[in-house]
Write a protein that binds this DNA or RNA. Structure first.
Lengths: 201, 201, 201, 201
DNA sequence: AATGAATGAGCGTTCATTCAT
DNA sequence: TATGAATGAACGCTCATTCAT
C-alpha cells in the first residue's frame, strides 16, 4: 500500500547514524550553534540534499544529537545498577564516573562536551528540554529504585523520600563532567574518595 | 593636557553594566550564539556604534557575561562560609541553593540559564574556560578551607584530602542548577534532605 | 565515484566572467573600494551567496579585475609586435594607443579607468602589485625584444641596454591612459605626432 | 563687521596643514578609501570635531590631499625649466625624475603613492579630476613653452604643434612614477638613458 | 533518491558624521 | 572653539534551506 522506499530501512538508519556521528564530532568541537550545516555536511561526506533527506532541519539534528549525548552513560550502567544486592551510592558513582572516563577516552568524540552543550540547549529549546527531562528523569528513577533498596539495607536514611535522595545522588554526574571539562585534577578515584569523606556510603 | 574624558569613569561603568544587563537578558533567553549583536543592541537601547565603544567584540561581551554569570553565587556565600565555627557541608549547600533560588527569583534574568550556557562555552572558548577555572577553582578552595575546619570538628573524614572532598561538595551546585533548569520538583529543601539521606553531615 | 559537478567547467567559467564583468563595470564607475560587494552582486544579477561561490572574497575579485584590466592591451598588440621586420617605437605606440581607444569605445566598460585604479591598488595590495609587475614586466620584455631588433635596424641606439629603452618606451602607455582619463584633447594621432617631434623614430 | 575668529588665520592654516600631513601619511599607506576618518583623526592628534572644523567632509580632505600630491613636482622644477637657454627634453626628464626620487626619499611620505591614488580618484570624483586637469594642464603648458623654445633651438621638430609634443613629454613623469611603484630596477639614470636611446634629444 | 548551486536574510563590525557639553 | 560619545546605514561575508536537474 505504502510507496516502496528505494533504499531499505536498514540503509536509511545507517545513513542517519553517519550524519549524527558527523554532527557529534562537530558539536564536540564547536557547540551546537557554532556548528554550521555546512560543517556537518562536509564531515558526513554526504551532500546538502542528502542530509536534508534524513533530517528536516538543523533543529532536528540538534535534537537527535542532544538525545544521543544524554543517553550515553545510562545504558552502560543500567544493568550494573539493577544487580542484587543493590550497589551502594558510592559504588554507583564509581561506575558512572568510570563509564564517563571510558567514553571520553575510547570514543572519537568527547561526549562530555556534547552533553554540556545539550544542557545549555535545554534552556532554550523546548524539545531538547523534554529530552533532557526524559533522560535525566530516567536516571533519577533508576537511582531512586536502588536507593529504596539501599534504605532496606541501611545505606540510606529510610525516613527520607528516595526521590529526594536521587536528586542529590544525580548531582554527582554533572558535577564530575563539568569539573572534567575544566580541570585536569579530577579522577573517579579522587572524586569517589571525596564523596566518601563527606559521609556518603 | 591629558585628554579629558567627556563622560566620567562612573558613567562609563554604568553604560557597560547597561550593555551587560541587556546581554544577560538575551543570553538567558537564547544562549550565547543565538543571541546576535543586534539583539543586544536593541535590548540595551543603544546604537551599534555605542555598544562597540564599550566592548571590542561579541567575544568580549561573551567573556564578560560568562564572568558575571559564574561570579554570582560566590560572593553571596563567601562571608557565610568563613564564619566560626565552620558550617557543615549540608549547611553550605543549604546556603548555596537558597542563594541560587533567590537570584533566579529576584533578578530579572535567570542567571542559572546563563551559567549553564557559560559551561558549554567553556568547552570551546579558551578565555571562558579560564574564567570558569578561576571561578570554580575559587569555589573549591573556599570549600576545601571549610572542609579542613570540618575535619577538625569531625564532620569530614580527616584521612581524606580536603581538595578531593571539595570536588565532591562542589558537585551539588551544578547538580542543583541543572535540575532546576529542567524540572520543577527540586527545591533547596528536597535537595538538602536528599543529601543528608545519603549520609552527608 | 568522483563528485560530478552539476554545472560544467564551462558554465562555471561563464558565471565567473559574468561576475567579473559586473565588477569591472562597478570599478570603472567607482574604483575598487567605493565598489561594494552589494554593488557587484546587484550588477551581476546573482545573489550574494552565488557570488561567494565563485570568489572567496572581495579581495579575490579585486585581484581578478586588476589582472584583467592590466591584461587588456597586451594580447592585442603581442602579435603585431612580433612581426618582421621589427616595428619602430612610434609604430608600437601607434598600435598601443589605438588598441586602448578601441577598447574604451567598443567595450561597455572603460578599462582605462579600471587600469588606473589597479595601479593605485598595487600601492597597497601585495597581490595586485605582483600582478602589475608580471603584466608590466611582460610588456617591457616584449618592448625590449623589439627594441633589440630595432637596434640592429638602426632605429635605436645600439650602445644602450634595451631594457632601459623599454622602460622609456613603456611610459607612453600610462602617459596616454592618464591623459585620456583627464582630458579630451589627446588622440593617438596627436600623441604619436608629439612623440615623433621629440625625436623618437 | 564679521565675527572675530578666536584663533588667527595663521593658526588655522597651521592646523589645516597638520591635518593634511596626517591624511597624506594615511593615504600613502592605504589609499583614499581604505583610509578612514578615524585614521586621519588619530594620526593628526586632533579630535573628530576639530578635524570637521577644518574640513567639511572626507571628500574635501581627499580633494586637498590630491591637490597637494599632484602639486609636488611642479614647483620644484618650474624655475629650472624657465631658465635660458631652454633645457632639452631629456634634461627636463632628468630634473623631474630626480625631483621625484628626492621627494620620496626625503619626505616622510611617499608622495608617488598618493599621486597614483589621486589619478585613480580623478576617475570618479569630478573635483579631483578638475584639480588633476589643472595641475597636469599646467605641467603641459610649461612643457609646451620650453618645447617651443626648443623648436627654435632645433631640438624639437618645428613642424609639430608644441602642445602635442608636450603630451608626449608629459608621459615620462607618470611612466616613471608607475614603474618606481612596482619595480626596483628603474632610476633616473636608466630611464633618461633609455629615453635618449629612443632618439629623444 | 541524490546532488550541489542558488537564495537572500541575517551575521558581527566599521563608517562618516553630528552635537550636547 | 574643541571634545569625543553617539548614531545608524552600510560594510564584507555566512547561514540554513531549497529545488532543478
Amino acid at each position: 500500500m505504502a510507496a516502496v522506499p528505494r533504499i531499505s530501512e536498514e540503509e536509511r538508519a545507517t545513513r542517519r547514524e553517519q550524519i549524527l556521528d558527523a554532527a557529534m564530532r562537530c558539536v564536540a568541537r564547536e557547540g551546537f550553534h557554532k556548528t554550521s550545516m555546512a560543517h556537518v555536511i562536509r564531515e558526513s561526506g554526504l551532500s546538502a540534499g542528502a542530509v536534508y533527506g534524513y533530517f528536516r532541519s538543523k533543529e532536528e539534528i540538534i535534537g537527535a544529537v542532544a538525545d544521543r549525548a544524554m543517553d550515553i552513560v545510562g545504558p552502560a550502567i543500567g544493568k550494573a545498577i539493577s544487580q542484587s544486592p543493590a550497589p551502594r551510592p558510592t559504588e554507583i558513582i564509581h561506575l558512572v564516573t568510570h563509564a564517563i572516563v571510558r567514553q571520553t577516552e575510547e570514543a572519537e568524540v568527547d561526549i562530555t562536551r556534547v552533553a554540556v552543550s545539550a544542557w545549555a540547549e535545554a534552556a532554550r529549546d523546548e524539545a531538547v528540554r523534554a529530552t533532557a527531562a526524559e533522560k535525566i528523569g530516567g536516571f533519577r528513577s533508576l537511582y531512586a529504585d536502588v536507593l529504596r533498596r539501599g534504605q532496606e539495607a541501611g545505606d540510606v536514611d529510610p525516613a527520607v523520600d528516595a526521590e529526594h535522595a536521587a536528586q542529590a545522588l544525580f548531582a554527582f554526574m554533572p558535577g564530575f563532567m563539568l569539573q572534567r571539562l575544566i580541570f585536569d585534577d579530577i579522577t573517579p578515584e579522587t572524586y569517589v574518595e571525596g564523596i566518601k569523606a563527606l559521609g556518603v556510603r
